[in-house]
Design a protein around this nucleic acid. Structure first.
Lengths: 236, 236
DNA sequence: TGACAATGACTGACTAGTCAGTCATATTTT
DNA sequence: AAAATATGACTGACTAGTCAGTCATTGTCA
């Protein structure tokens, strides 16, 4: 791993470390009264701080090259504290993925197709996808899973069950709706909802690898893709 | 001794393997001896053995977690030998990607659109892609690049310039052909050849992450995708 | 052609570190 | 004061990279 020839390992050290140090509750007046940020709450905060810091580090360096010392520093915590919350590095990584995926999962479960057109639903999906994933930290998480998933079967399994399988099911329902309403002609799409999602995935990867040298207008690309699916002639 | 930082001892040769030999290979004149594996040849073989071994290891474990000791063992070579051919771990990794991508690059330069239909050309492309990339070691290489590319800008650059940019250009030409011949309606595709390639990329990633638990029939998926692009009604 | 010298590819023990995980000690809460 | 938490110095396993020495191959000369 990192080492030897002055790797750029500690390039950006301490400055961006948010010192969440000793934020004493200050309710220390009467020992008989309980202090406000109850222990459980402070513990939960620490846990979250560790997860947030670890996410940043794992995204930036990948699993193997991430140092728990750095995670601790970034979280404003001693290394030993990490071990009060997580059994080991791998557990931290796995729980982190779970935590990070939580919001995405609930979002997948929430939005029902409603009674509108399939095109409208897919357009909404595309818009949300771009502004909440391609552009943001969540895109990094997806890339992280793609990068490390093969080495962490449990992570890949979890991701498949909780995100991919559900996403595919939801997408298939949308496609069937579109076919039923006569918006979509290509019936084969039902068997491969992946085709509908593929450009979105590609956008995530593209942005991560080539974003700086050849940015991709994901929004526009997805619009063209929907035109393809719904059979509209391109404008230009 | 062992004065740590001796920067002068940097006579790294190896890497550019230029047969600087003056005259050419010894003739196998001696009847008593069999064909000499001549030093230069054996050296080249070793270099290749190292690259092959390193490829396996990097694919299996990722860059950071790969041990050069293991690479050496797999290549049937001592660790020091690796350093006779490559400056360091990172150089080995980069040259390996270059080497691995070579065949793919030349293949991209070779096949001209010819005079046939765009559909035929794309079908051929899909077939070759599945049987030569999705299924094989080359797919692993693509996944490796996706996984590590963000941490190795030079690798991402190289991949973009030599493979992605060319691939996109070739794909765009094919799309334009299809539009000119009236096979493809959706003109917007010209601006986003990525859409045509996206399912193929997704197949590569899918196979790597979920292949074991939820295999994807890439061939069939690409066929459906082409039906979508060329406006055929799905069979099923 | 055979003997001997020069070359440099190869080896692997060794150096100088790195880092996950531990635990005795210190701090805070009850 | 005891219990619960947090700390960070420390340990031990592990690894990238080095280099003095070995010896098969190649070159030279008698």
């Amino acid at each position: 791993m990192s080492n030897g020839s002055s790797k750029s390992a500690d390039r950006r050290r301490g400055e961006n470390v948010a010192p969440v140090k000793k934020q004493k509750p200050a309710r220390s007046g009467s020992p008989s009264l309980k202090s406000f940020p109850s222990r459980a709450i402070r513990a939960a905060e620490r846990r979250e701080a560790i997860i947030a810091a670890a996410l940043d580090e794992f995204i930036a360096r990948g699993y193997a090259a991430t140092r728990l010392d750095d995670v601790a520093k970034r979280a404003g915590v001693a290394k030993g504290t990490i071990y009060l919350h997580f059994a080991d590095k791998e557990t931290l990584f796995q729980e982190l993925i779970r935590t990070a995926l939580g919001p995405l999962i609930s979002r997948l479960a929430a939005p029902p197709p409603a009674g509108g057109s399939a095109r409208a639903a897919l357009e909404r999906f595309a818009q949300i996808f771009v502004q909440e994933i391609v552009t943001t930290r969540r895109g990094d998480i997806v890339r992280l899973i793609i990068a490390e998933g093969a080495r962490f079967p449990s992570v890949a399994d979890f991701y498949y069950r909780e995100v991919v399988a559900r996403g595919m099911a939801a997408m298939r329902a949308l496609i069937e709706l579109g076919i039923a309403r006569g918006e979509i002609r290509q019936q084969g799409l039902t068997r491969f909802p992946q085709i509908v999602v593929a450009p979105a995935m590609l956008a995530v990867i593209w942005q991560g690898l080539f974003g700086s040298q050849a940015p991709l207008d994901a929004t526009e690309m997805l619009r063209v893709h929907l035109d393809l699916i719904f059979g509209e002639r391109g404008t230009t």
